[in-house]
Write a protein that binds this DNA or RNA. Sequence first.
DNA 1: GTTTTAAGATCGGGC
DNA 2: GCCCGATGTTAAAAC
Lengths: 250, 250
Amino acid sequence: MKYLVSPSPQEALDALLEGRSDSKKSMATIIGRCKVEYSGRAKSFLDYGDRLVIVKPDGTIMVHSDTKREPLNWQPPGTKIEYSLDDGLTILARRTSPVETMHIHFRKVHALTVFQLEDGAELNLVGEESDLVDKIEKDPSIIEPGLRVLRREKTTDSGYIDLFCEDAKGNTVIVEVKRTLISHNAVYQLEAYLIDFRKKNKEAPVRGILCAPRISEMAKTLADEKGLEYRQIEWDFELKDKKQRSLDCF
Amino acid sequence: MKYLVSPSPQEALDALLEGRSDSKKSMATIIGRCKVEYSGRAKSFLDYGDRLVIVKPDGTIMVHSDTKREPLNWQPPGTKIEYSLDDGLTILARRTSPVETMHIHFRKVHALTVFQLEDGAELNLVGEESDLVDKIEKDPSIIEPGLRVLRREKTTDSGYIDLFCEDAKGNTVIVEVKRTLISHNAVYQLEAYLIDFRKKNKEAPVRGILCAPRISEMAKTLADEKGLEYRQIEWDFELKDKKQRSLDCF
DNA sequence: GTTTTAAGATCGGGC
DNA sequence: GCCCGATGTTAAAAC
């Protein structure tokens, strides 16, 4: 790890280039007074001010102010990053597809850290939408007695749908799941699928069920108008380690 | 600015608490071997590994790995952050609405920087959807000769719409604008609005126009089926400083 | 590489 | 505060 306080532009440049040439590429944090110009999907200008700039070895670069979770400017992974001197430290970040450039010029570097992160761990997260779909797939009766899941679907001609089911009477049931709130967008999506399904299946009887812990008022009204059903579904989730997850498969 | 290399937990804690008690609260970057537990909207566990942790004075906290633009774990602005010692430096980040907690424990702090950012500048950005709507509002003929914008709308009973217009023949025209791509969601949204409009206006003639530089194939097919029109619209954008923007108003 | 959808999305605006 | 829609969204999965 290399740390420099108030380095000259040349010293900062040297440290950044050194970190880049390491066998395992380094990442860097730069605290300094800088100006940022961006041009690509949009275009922006940010005049001189103190910011925290983070450069990752995968080509990610972020310019952070002292508020908000989101960076003021950034480039995503895969960006080519070049350092140079031009009356101060300069960073040029470029990529194609889409063509974008971000140019950072430092009037003053207050501090610079070049370092490597050794990390063998992976994030273990539960509570995503797919976990709720899992739960329903395992026990469809939490939606309705007698419901059977025929397919867990992904994309179709008329969009993505979560669960393709059959009810106790043999009717087809399309289930759309959201982890938190059903908004009217989800209602349109489900309706569109049903319209398409009926068209392709000669008006076969099919029901649509929206499934979530909550639904917005507008979505509920819309759903009622369109004859779509809503099932409130409460859920919780517990972390499992990988060993337990594997055992669950048996 | 305070910088510590390989500080003891106590030294790290002292530096963080000192920065917090400054008249202008400081922010901090912590490079170290840590474990992260999160529970709230979802739940996650991240075992020990080296990461870059950023704490902002507005309560934002992020745990970054050496890849990706997105943090592994985080809490948004407004979060209450507490530092303590517990066989190593510990950070507890808590908020209500929703109730969430994130717990970070450091086995080792490699480096810690506490600093303040002076920044009087604001990001000046163009190329958002609203800029494209502006352009159309100024010269609706780029969509169609004789088109007049009656209202630039916000929310209605059946959703949000961008531009409420009238064509040369006096028909109502609803325009939906996207800055990049029209996907089928936009088609559903516009269709829903038209259905609602016709219902409320006794089947008055109304056209729907989708307006963007690009449309997905599925969206185009859907739009055709539903009798909605698509106008490809190319655009560029130039930055203007605030003075010019003000002058533009006159 | 394009398209589609989820995200612990975040963020801002309107009510 | 809830709800809605944009974001230079990012990221992942399916095709």
